[in-house]
Simulated scan of single mutants.
Amino acid sequence: MVITMKTLGSQSAKLVQTLHDERKSIFTIKDAARILQSPKNVVSNMLGKAQQRGIVTRLQRGLYTLVPAELGSETVYAGDPLVVADHLPGERLHYLSHGTALAIHGMTLQPRIVVTVSAVGSPSRTINVQGTEIRIVNIRESQVFGIEKHWVDPGVSVQVSDVERTIIDCLRRPDLCGGYAEADVGTWIVRDRVRTQTLVDYALRLNVGAVIRRLGYLLDSCQIGTEDDRARLTEKLSATYHPLDPSLPADGPHSAKWRLRLNVSREELEAQRGS
């Protein structure tokens, strides 16, 4: 067995110490160049050697994480998946979303397998970072609203959609949260504290017909909201029908009230709530 000696030179020691002082476990080449006051090409070479010694792990081009000293001779460390995902879009506007946000808010009983982050101007793709699958979803800048901080550790936070925006995102892309049923179960779990007026505000602001229809059905299904909430949604309906869950076959009865093809039955939804 080969044991890698994690010896620190003066530059790498300065970098590690400063990053700890700044509470940055994940950092960019730009951060390192600022701390070391050295050109990026010099810093990149130093980080390559630091990675070989197990001091840092490269997450993607230009992005690194410190390997905790308590891991001993381990040389690869991915860090907290939520923090890693929060850093991947760089300076682009972004937030953790869909199924990941459901898990953060305690709105699902399913294990979190994939971490999803919505980002402005970033190509939609799925990447693997040291064994963690992270899905990046491209959105427009006008769609960045309903965001809050989630504290992972003292002094370490990530951007995440709030409860209401999480529901709206899941209604728009049920495939990114496990299906419409997961959005229903999540809403049911938080039904006593969800702000239904805010839900409607968000749906109308997003202005996607399928979302407006699904939200109206969701309010009825979870028995939340007021008649005024429903009326605001009804005003925006057109004659077109959309599937309740676009990832499932387009079968089942039609709902004239919400212009939906009900390809997930009420019985299925109630069964999942009780599971």
Rank of each mutant, 00 (worst) to 15 (best):
I139L: 08
E148Y: 02
G155V: 11
I167V: 15
E164N: 10
V117K: 04
V117R: 05
E182S: 06
W151Y: 14
G79F: 08
V160W: 04
L88D: 13
S157M: 07
V117W: 04
H105Y: 13
G99P: 01
A101F: 01
S118T: 00
A101H: 02
K149G: 09
G106K: 06
S142K: 14
L82Y: 12
G179K: 00
D153M: 14
R125C: 14
V158R: 02
Q159G: 05
V156A: 10
A181G: 10
V137Q: 08
A78D: 07
I104P: 02
P89E: 11
V117E: 06
F145T: 05
R172A: 14
I127Y: 02
S118Q: 03
G155H: 09
S97W: 00
G186D: 11
S124G: 04
V83D: 01
G121A: 06
C177L: 09
S161M: 04
T132W: 03
G99K: 08
E164V: 11
V83C: 07
Y180L: 10
Q143S: 15
V163W: 00
S142C: 06
L96A: 12
G146S: 10
G99L: 09
A183W: 04
E91W: 00
I113S: 08
P89H: 06
I104V: 15
L88G: 14
G179P: 01
R140Q: 14
Y77R: 14
I127D: 15
V115D: 09
E182Y: 03
I113A: 12
V83I: 15
R140V: 03
V158K: 09
C170L: 02
F145R: 00
L96C: 11
I136Q: 09
G99M: 11
L176P: 01
R165A: 11
A181W: 03
V83T: 11
I168N: 10
F145E: 07
P123W: 03
S142E: 15
L96R: 05
E148T: 14
H105G: 12
E182T: 07
E164D: 13
A85D: 10
Y95C: 07
I134M: 11
T108S: 15
S97M: 03
I167S: 12
I127M: 14
I139P: 01
F145A: 09
L102P: 00
S97T: 01
R112C: 14
D175R: 09
S142M: 08
I147H: 06
T100G: 08
G99Y: 01
R173G: 03
S124C: 00
T100E: 13
V163M: 04
G186K: 02
D162V: 03
T132V: 13
G155M: 10
N138F: 00
H150K: 10
C177V: 05
G121Q: 03
S157E: 12
G79P: 00
D162P: 01
D175I: 07
E141P: 01
I168Q: 09
D169C: 04
I139M: 09
S142W: 00
I134L: 13
E148P: 00
P111A: 11
P81G: 14
V158E: 08
H150I: 08
R125W: 05
S161A: 15
